[in-house]
Design a protein around this nucleic acid. Structure first.
Ligand SMILES: [Mn+2]
Ligand SMILES: [Mn+2]
Ligand SMILES: [Zn+2]
Ligand SMILES: [Zn+2]
Lengths: 142, 142
DNA sequence: TTTTGATTTGTAATGAGTACAAAAGTAGAA
DNA sequence: TTCTACTTTTGTACTCATTACAAATCAAAA
């Protein structure tokens, strides 16, 4: 509710991003989303609330969010980029059957054994992606 | 040399891939390549040896290789897929300055703490990607 | 040689993402 | 308020990696 929008506003400001209506709505969408939506999916859903929004604005906004460390890009699927709020660091699992992307809890995440240097190279980010068949699909298949 | 081509031939046959001239040449290119080339790069170089080869054949061949587990796709760069022979499992490091992709030795690779199940999901593959500034660029920058 | 199936080729199409310039919005100065 | 400068948003055109598809070529067996 209104409190939430207020929170998002403050959060964006704290990250040096001017909290426009579009940006707030996209941020809100990401916070409510349990999934890891693509730009296309974000557009499809947000356009229901803001019928005049353009796809370019979605891309622009995501770009700003990524630059400010608010959002992180997932390239687990190969074809399309998925987006995730940069909260606690965690790995991701892609189900090759249903296509869903699951969060791996930080405790189980390999990427958490994060190094800042590997073989002489300075590491700024680590991404660990798992692929296979998810729990739900395994059960359904039996 | 000829021994090598003979080896590749046998290897492809052992993987149930008919060892055509094109496939052998692409395989040879991958074996000689220290880098992690894109389909485009492979085409550019292989077309020097086989002037009539088409880009589609490169894509087709890589697809077959991936299906048979001969080659692995790297989606570390976001935009383009890079290809790597599936030898010993290892992680990769992308330098954000020079764009090169480095191998991480298997011993240092996080992905080798490989699990076959994570949080109830069946894991078929794990990919760990590091991004940052490579050793060479770090030295050059000083 | 004929037949059959696999491979290769060229071209057209797809689809995610970007470039760019015009339009609209915002906020402060005068 | 009006003017001005700057930022954001929009629509459209474009790029570029990859795929679809059908025709041509090749290979190997009968
Ligand atoms: Mn996540
Ligand atoms: Mn490698
Ligand atoms: Zn699933
Ligand atoms: Zn470098």
């Amino acid at each position: 509710m209104s409190t939430k929008v207020e929170n998002i506003k403050n959060y964006l400001e704290s990250k040096n991003v001017k909290p426009t209506y579009h940006r707030i709505m996209i941020m809100k969408y990401l916070e409510d989303s349990k999934e890891h939506p693509t730009a296309e999916k974000i557009y499809e859903d947000v356009v229901k609330t803001i019928p005049t929004i353009s796809k370019t604005t979605v891309y622009n906004t995501l770009k700003v969010f990524v630059e400010e460390g608010i959002v992180e890009e997932l390239n687990i699927a190969g074809t399309t980029t998925h987006y995730d709020l940069s909260k606690q660091d965690h790995d991701h699992f892609l189900c090759l059957e249903c296509g869903r992307i699951y969060d791996i809890s930080p405790e189980e995440s390999l990427g958490r054994n994060c190094v800042d240097t590997i073989e002489g190279n300075k590491v700024d980010e680590v991404k660990c992606y798992y692929k296979g068949i998810c729990k739900e699909c395994l059960e359904k298949d039996n």
